[in-house]
Write a protein that binds this DNA or RNA. Sequence first.
RNA 1: GUGGGCGUAGCUCAGUGGAUAGAGCAUCGGUCUUCUAAACCGACGGUCAAGGGUUCGAGUCCCUUCGCCCACGCCA
Length: 602
Amino acid sequence: MAENLLIAGATMYTFERFAQEIKQALVATGLLTEDQIDLSVPKAKGATGDLALPCFKAAKAQGGNPAQLAQQLAQQLTLPADGLIGTVEVAGPYVNFSLRQAAFAAEVLHDVAERGEHYGCADNATGRTVIVEYSSPNIAKRMHVGHIRSTIIGQAIANLYACSGYQVVRDNHLGDYGKQFGVMIAAVQRYGRPDAEGEAALEQMEGIYQRYNNLLRDAAAADEEFNPDAEGDLDDEARAWSLKLEQDDPQAVELWQWMVDLTKAANQRNYDRLGVHFDTQHGESFYKHLLGEVINAAGESELAERDNGAVIIKDLPDARGKTLPTFLIQRSDGGTLYITRDIATIKHREATYDPAAIIYIVGQPQELHFRQTFALARALGYTDAELTHVSFGTVFDAQGQALSTRKGNMIYLEALLDESYTRAKALIEQKVAEGKTTLSAEQIDAVAKQVGVGAVIYNDLYQDPKRNITVDWDRMLAFEGNSAPYLQYMHARCCSILREGAPLAADYSAALLVHPTEQSLLKEIARLPEVVREAAERFAPFVIADWLYATARAFSAFYDACSVLKAETAELRAARLHLVDATAQALRNGLALLSIQAPERM
RNA sequence: GUGGGCGUAGCUCAGUGGAUAGAGCAUCGGUCUUCUAAACCGACGGUCAAGGGUUCGAGUCCCUUCGCCCACGCCA
């Protein structure tokens, strides 16, 4: 993917041009070849420089001494007069290259101004399609923590691929298929439809589903309607509805469709609050016409064995050649399984989109399922797309128990967003009372929504999704330190300065931005394009979050050290206003990649 | 048992073979008459789970061991 972004004609951002200049100058010495050049960012505390060449590799290839080679290189380098390279220093086996501050500042600010809200993104379309499957809640149930993680992480990954020049298909793969829908329909017939809306309606659905299930089991003794004689009937009833549904019985389909619509409407409220949208929301049932083909194709292959009517796949190797555990693609009663439907889905996607990649945002417990799915889809020749399972860790409560509805420790999306909004609003009202900011009641409400949602999103995106999470409300909804509200606050401060300092001068001298905090801030802003690329390649939104935090901190340090509106000279004021403008734009762009809003006041 | 993930400061986490391992929270100490203190500056805090190996160089790669989480043919 990195190659795609460097093809001729693509816009190169400042840091790329800097690296390019260094490579060209190094190769021109004739002392090493391009493949021996591996530039890195200097980490040593005393090191001066913005990019470094460690000389170990080249020296080894030539049988020489790294420190000597570094010396020779530094002596024989000829630098372009008006380029980005400022000074070159040798530190032992390293050659350190520093940016020429004036040129660097001008080019970074120019990059941002020119690209605006697209700054950081690849501007050349790859012409390739990526499908991102995320959120994927179940019909007739509330979205719980797992779906929340999938929704938020998936949305960010989809954003990252769109920003990287891919055509992105955002696919909400709804859980609308399976035996439980027979029970669900029977339960609705018996207890009636919910009278609430939104998540409350789904909560009622969960309730009657549970109640019906309890009736089926002996645990139903407590239910006043329990009648031992009816038990067998109840089971038959559910089974009958399940069968009717599969046979497209009009009444069953109508009830099922009603549940789908109810659930979609309820979830849509939450998606709207989160700013999440999808291009397609097909459920598993959408792919059922392909199930027969899948089973036939697999059944005829050498991979399959039949056992009492079931179709079993044995000894299938995965992408790394490891043999996967045996699994079924057809039950002995002829029914299909989750994996059968997932493979049918791949077949459909290949035919519909010809994707370069399909990215699944699903929890870690399904790691084996996806290895099996991918391996079988490949073995059947259904796709040549890159298939990736981005797995995320489990959420545990403070006692170390996994969250579950039955234990009563589950966290649902609506309640989480409400809690976050309430906390944000209380904090904003406190700031207003302290005279720190002035906002109307309407503005308080709007900002509380943006800050509340931002905190929830950031909690899922600031770290590697692989990690398990322990519930801690204070940390989840933190408004200080490394948190969304901090990032939003720094953006709002930028906006405040820009309001006061408007309009921006058409002519200004970026060369005046030589204060250490100004240069540090510029360097952070300049990193965004490479950060976007890395985040996409690693399926890692937290790389963006890291960058946002570093950039916001750099701005904060600048804000503290340098007054913009009361700068020493009018020229410096003008230049700093442009720096603040670029900072605001870069922060907005980074936040947008995470689907976090950037209020102008807070 | 087999396979996957994780193990870095008291807690939550970055660190993708390069130089003296970094942040936030917590604790302690400074900084608002100033462009918003949701902030800034400083201090404290480390046997990178343990042991071996690979190499100029390992938190990072390989092997072994330990601990935690998860998965493993008729749920999704």
